[in-house]
């Protein structure tokens, strides 16, 4: 006569987890393991209502393979296709790498906090990006360019492991033409590379920031961001003007599945972009 709920017919839940289909309209190959997928929502209402901010991410879901958090890399001020630059390293993203133009993928989002693009008007902006970390910063770079006169000095230091790993190489000249100082460096190079060799955080010593009027934004491997942070702090940039984009195992995107907790934060909801002031209590706590 007894019957447990586990044996009951399974419940169906209608909520934020449901799929939201989009079609791949364009694929740009960036590097040997990274491409940008340009998506359009199938549903016209969704397409119209979808708004996002620079630095936010979506959960891309491919049936059978699962879901993966991917930051949005297109211009939030532009209507139309939504860009996702994806590095193919996990089960889900490797399956995504096999998709073609015309294929469908589900998109949930946008989730998370954004770069303080509005709040930083009137200030000098220093951006340190490493590897795929340039992807979530590109929307912010576009927005700065859209309103370039509203910002002071804008400097981008971008690095990757080797020249062939650099993203968006076709856009550098355009960025530079908007009075943006862009330094591009690689960790490893042979003699065909005429640019800078050296790790990203090291180039801080070439900058002479006016700390009170500078915001520092960084995204890249966590160790890289830590060294960028140390350089920023050494130059007296205030804790609440340093923004880092963190990443953990995001699953639900709405701070309820528990996976991406970092201290009291849910990275998916309270982050991914935090000020150092917010992160400081948990900073350098191993395996938090």
């Amino acid at each position: 006569m007894t019957m447990s709920a586990v044996e009951d017919k399974m419940h169906v839940e209608e909520n934020a987890m449901n799929p939201n289909w989009a079609v791949i309209k364009k694929i740009e190959t960036e590097t040997v393991d990274t491409s940008t997928l340009w998506l359009e929502f199938e549903d016209e209402e969704v397409r119209k209502d979808y708004k996002y901010s620079a630095g936010q991410f979506n959960m891309l879901y491919l049936p059978i393979y699962g879901e993966s958090a991917i930051s949005i890399s297109s211009d939030p001020d532009q209507e139309g296709l939504i860009g996702h630059t994806i590095r193919f390293v996990g089960n889900v993203t490797r399956a995504v790498s096999r998709l073609n133009v015309g294929d469908r993928i589900s998109v949930r989002g946008p989730f998370g906090t954004n770069w303080p693009v509005e709040e930083s008007k009137g200030k000098d902006v220093i951006i340190f990006a490493g590897g795929i970390g340039l992807a979530p910063l590109r929307p912010a770079i576009y927005q700065i360019i859209n309103n370039r006169k509203d910002y002071g000095k804008v400097t981008i230091v971008y690095g990757a492991r080797c020249p062939s790993d650099l993203l968006y190489t076709g856009e550098y000249e355009e960025w530079r033409s908007h009075d943006i100082e862009l330094m591009v460096t690689v960790d490893h190079a042979d003699d065909t590379w005429d640019g800078l060799v050296g790790v990203v955080p090291m180039y801080f010593y070439r900058l002479r920031p006016n700390p009170e009027n500078t915001v520092l934004w960084s995204c890249g491997p966590e160790i890289m961001m830590h060294f960028v942070l140390y350089e920023g702090l050494a130059r007296k940039i205030p804790d609440n003007q340093i923004y880092l984009s963190y990443e953990r195992n995001m699953k639900c995107g709405v701070g309820v599945c528990g996976h991406c907790q970092h201290g009291a934060y849910y990275i998916c909801k309270d982050g991914p972009i935090f000020t150092y002031e917010q992160l400081e209590p948990y900073f350098n706590v191993e395996d938090l």
Binding site: M10, H11, V12, E13, M17
Partner: peptide
């Protein structure tokens, strides 16, 4: 009973290469 150990969110079936 309140948050069952396994809950179905949705089902998908592939028809003519479309989920």
């Amino acid at each position: 009973y309140l948050t069952p150990p396994r809950t179905k969110l949705f089902g998908l079936v592939n028809v003519d290469n479309k989920w």
